[in-house]
Structures are given as structure tokens and as C-alpha cells.
Write a protein that binds this DNA or RNA. Structure first.
Lengths: 152, 152
DNA sequence: CCTGTAAATGCAAATCATTTGCAATTGGAG
DNA sequence: CTCCAATTGCAAATGATTTGCATTTACAGG
């Protein structure tokens, strides 16, 4: 069983630490970007673009800007993208140095997500890759069910 | 490890067996539906709507009809819907009585998919559900990598 | 075989998530 | 303080999927 280290996520990263990562790549620290990072910091859960947009103080900043910013910081490895049951991508901050690999238990009623420790057995993944001659194999794994609250 | 029974899929179901399932639900056997089922039968792999559309003899039948038909037969449990890396849903026939639960190893270059026997350990899934108070828990699991052909 | 009717279809327009072109703006190195 | 690449807003373009509606059709029952 893979040892997961995603608990890092719960030690909220400081905003300066996040902006530094941008600066190091000679990226500008703009109003929208600072706001996006702050919102992600405040919500240690996967957020949709729409959710980020509506958290935005005064609704400032275009949706397109959020899409572009998330692409950028995703490519930089600062956030990870997840896909749950509905069609919207969700993003979660990733600690520097972490690969952000982990999974969720998602409620199909309210979309609330619990972060999980468990992961697919590595040896088994290696075996699958080998048997089929595939290289650079990873996996996406999400659990779906009804959360306690939605069971009424 | 869960014992998977999806090998059934490879014993192609006969077309009459498929149309009977429709008839039993008082659904009409129309030209487009017969064509769709036949195409799915001929391709024991997850197909996108577009792929089904282009396999369609003479390009007959509207895209909307394919979407509607697949919704219908999905609700009837005749096909299962999968999501790989690109944004398009893919559908695969499911044998009657089977729940179609299985996973794939997908090439991120060419989207070729290999059906897998392996599944996430049931006991572990039960433990995850229990520890978080979730009911009716299932999972989606797909592996991604570079297939032998795409490694050059 | 004929018919009534619910089920299905085609077509076009609507939605939803996301992307992109472009001209105007701006952060921050020097 | 200046300059220029990086960013942004806005609007229009995509791509997948859905839906409204008027028209057609499969097939149960006579």
C-alpha cells in the first residue's frame, strides 16, 4: 500500500509561499491570482471554477482569467485537477514537493468530498503496467456513495 | 480481490438478445437503435458517441438520436458509461445480469483501452465506506499510461 | 391487413464547461 | 520612471451534450 503524504495539504500553505512559487517562474502576482490562491488556501477541498468565481470578493475577475490561472498553476504543479460525477473539473492546492496523488470519497447527492489515505496497491499497478507493456502508468480512483448527511 | 466476470463481454451477445431486452421494456426496435446495438456488438471496446456516429452505415441517424438511445439503454443497464482522459463519454455493452463493473488501462496518446481483470480490494472499499459513514459506495478506477505502439 | 397511439426521430436552437483572439492594461526588472 | 512581456477583460468560438417541437413510425389490438 502506497504511503501517502497528502496530509501536507491540511497544513495550509502561507500565501507568500504560494506567490513566491509564481515569482520564481517569473509570473506576475496580480489581483485575480492572489485572490484565487487565497480562496484555494481557505478551502482545503476540490473546488470548481464556478465555486472559486463566486467566492471571489465583489465577483471581480473574469471567468476566463480563472480558467487561465488554474491552467498555469496546474502546469506548475501547484494545484491538482479532479473529476467527480458531474461534468465540472475541481482543483485542490498541492504542497510544494508533493505530487498531490490521492483520492476522494464523494457524495453523489451533495458532492461533498472526503480526502482518503487509501490508494491502489503499487505492486498491483506495476504488474498491470508490465503485463500490458505500458509505460508511465498512473491511475485515477474516486469513490462514490451517499454521505451521512444525505442519508437524511 | 474481487472476482470479475466481465469476460462475458467478449462472448458477443446476439443482436436478437439485445433487441429482446428493448422489447421487454416496450421499447421500439428502430433502424437507428438496431444499428447502434450492432455497432456496439462489433466493437468490444468503449466507444464515443462520435465513433458510433461515424461507424453508422451511410451516416444515417442524427447525433441526438444516438445520445438519446444511449441514455435509454444505459438506464436499462445494457451499456456502461466510462470517462477517460479526453472529455468524451464512452460506452460499452454489458451482458445481461452483469453489472459491467470493470476498469481499463488507457493510452494517453491514442486512447486505446485494455480491459482489466483487476479491481480495487472490496474489503478495503468496505472499510472506507464504514469509516466515513457513507452508504452504497462504489468506485471509478482507470489506469493511464503509454501503450507499446505509442512508445514508438 | 388496418389503425390509433405512444414512442422515436430529425432538425435546429439552447446549455454547459471550457477555450481563444485581440486589443487594452499592468507588474516588476532594470 | 520606463518598457515590455505577461495578464486581463470581453466577446466570440468550441465541443460535448441536451432539449423543444412538429413529424414520423413501430407495433399492439382488432
Amino acid at each position: 500500500m502506497k504511503k501517502c503524504v497528502h496530509k501536507h495539504l491540511h497544513h495550509k500553505q502561507e500565501l507568500p509561499a504560494l506567490t513566491d512559487r509564481l515569482r520564481r517562474q517569473s509570473r506576475k502576482i496580480t489581483g485575480p491570482r492572489a485572490a484565487i490562491l487565497e480562496i484555494l488556501r481557505q478551502h482545503p477541498h476540490p473546488l470548481t471554477i464556478k465555486e472559486i468565481f463566486s467566492e471571489m470578493p465583489a465577483g471581480e475577475c473574469d471567468l476566463a482569467t480563472i480558467y487561465r490561472s488554474l491552467h498555469l498553476i496546474e502546469k506548475m504543479g501547484m494545484v491538482k485537477r479532479f473529476h467527480f460525477h458531474d461534468g465540472a473539473a475541481r482543483f485542490e492546492l498541492v504542497a510544494e514537493g508533493d505530487d498531490g496523488h490521492h483520492h476522494h470519497l464523494v457524495c453523489t447527492k451533495c458532492s461533498q468530498a472526503v480526502e482518503l489515505e487509501e490508494c491502489f496497491p503499487v505492486e498491483l499497478e506495476r504488474k498491470i503496467a508490465k503485463e500490458n507493456g505500458f509505460k508511465a502508468v498512473t491511475h485515477k480512483l474516486e469513490f462514490f456513495g451517499i454521505c451521512p448527511a444525505c442519508q437524511r
